[in-house]
Each structure stands twice: as structure tokens, then as C-alpha cells.
């Protein structure tokens, strides 16, 4: 990719992280690493965001929160799992309250290694995320009725686009929020 087609806005949620990756996500936006030069803005609103940055593993209580933030984001969207815990549980893998990495609740597009993750790798991941975002947008343009949805989404029946429900004969709108 020789140019960035879009200024990606990110939303950050701290799963059960230790803050180490958290503060590195913020550090990536501040003057030394300055991801803002790529137009990366940290927003607090899921509806404004293109990229969902998750740090830390998933536990019993925050799984619905992560799911909900993901559902509120508009398509196309990209999920970046930052750090060892978000990738697969990390040092807390064997703890009783940790379900695993981010991919145990939502589909993940990019995994960033490190404990704690380094700001350079976060910038790498966000830039890679822009590429994925572009592909997803293209796929949506080719076939507006078919949105790039994950299997887990389809399985749980959450967030089924209306257009698709209408396509199914006899569908009574089940699964539409």
C-alpha cells in the first residue's frame, strides 16, 4: 500500500488487561510515536470508529461489553487484538476468570504480539488494519446485500442486516434488533 486511503478512527477498550498495553496504545498516539500523522484519532464513540483496538483478555463480565461495542460499530470494521493477553490470554491464561483471547467473543483481523506490546507494533497493526478495511469496503461495494460478516455473528444471530433477512423466504424478522 503506497498511500493511506482513509484516516482510521480507533476505539479502544481495555478488556482484562494490566494497563501495560493500554498505556502503550495511548503512547502510540502521543508525540514520540505520533500515529496522528496518519490521521489516527482515538474516539470514544463506537459509531465513529473504524478500528476496534482491544487490549487484555476476555473475562466473564466484560465479554458482553466487548460484544456490544463491536455490534455498535458500523461496517466495514476491523478488530485489532493488542498484546499477548488479547491474542490468547497471555500470563492469565490459566486464571479461573479468563475465558481467553479476544477471538473467543468477536472475530479478530490482526494480532499484535508483545507483553507489553510496543507502540511501533500497534502502529503497524493499525496501518495493516486500514488495508483490511479497504478490502472489506470493496467487498461491500461489489455486493451491497452481502456484508462481510463473521461466522460467530451469523451463529449467534446478532446484528443480521435487514436486507439479508428479507432475502430469506418466510423470515419473520427474527434476529433483527
Amino acid at each position: 500500500m503506497s498511500y493511506v486511503s482513509k484516516s482510521p478512527w480507533i476505539i479502544h477498550y481495555d478488556g482484562s488487561s494490566c494497563n501495560g498495553c493500554d498505556i502503550e496504545v495511548l503512547a502510540a498516539l502521543t508525540p514520540l510515536y505520533d500515529a496522528e500523522r496518519f490521521g489516527v484519532v482515538n474516539t470514544g464513540n463506537p459509531k465513529h470508529a473504524d478500528i476496534f483496538v482491544v487490549t487484555g483478555g476476555v473475562n466473564e463480565q466484560n465479554a458482553p461489553v466487548i460484544k456490544q461495542i463491536y455490534d455498535q460499530m458500523l461496517e466495514p470494521k476491523v478488530v485489532v487484538a493488542c498484546g499477548a493477553c488479547a491474542c490468547g490470554g497471555g500470563v492469565y491464561q490459566t486464571c479461573y476468570n479468563v475465558l481467553g483471547g479476544t477471538d473467543s467473543v468477536i472475530p479478530v483481523d490482526a494480532y499484535v504480539p508483545g507483553c507489553a506490546v510496543r507502540p511501533e507494533s500497534i502502529i503497524d497493526a493499525v496501518v495493516a488494519g486500514v488495508g483490511i478495511l479497504e478490502e472489506k469496503a470493496k467487498a461491500m461495494k461489489m455486493n451491497p446485500a452481502h456484508k462481510d460478516r463473521s461466522e460467530s455473528d451469523a451463529a449467534s444471530g446478532a446484528h443480521v442486516p435487514v436486507a439479508q433477512v428479507d432475502d430469506v423466504p418466510g423470515a419473520s424478522g427474527a434476529g433483527v434488533e
Binding site: 473475562n59 466473564e60 463480565q61 479461573y96 476468570n97 475465558l99
Partner: peptide, 9 residues
């Protein structure tokens, strides 16, 4: 207070 995956872990 804590929602944990098991009772009294």
C-alpha cells in the same frame, strides 16, 4: 460485586 465464572473461586 464480582461476576466470576464460578461460585466462590
Amino acid at each position: 460485586f464480582y461476576q466470576v465464572s464460578m461460585t466462590f473461586p
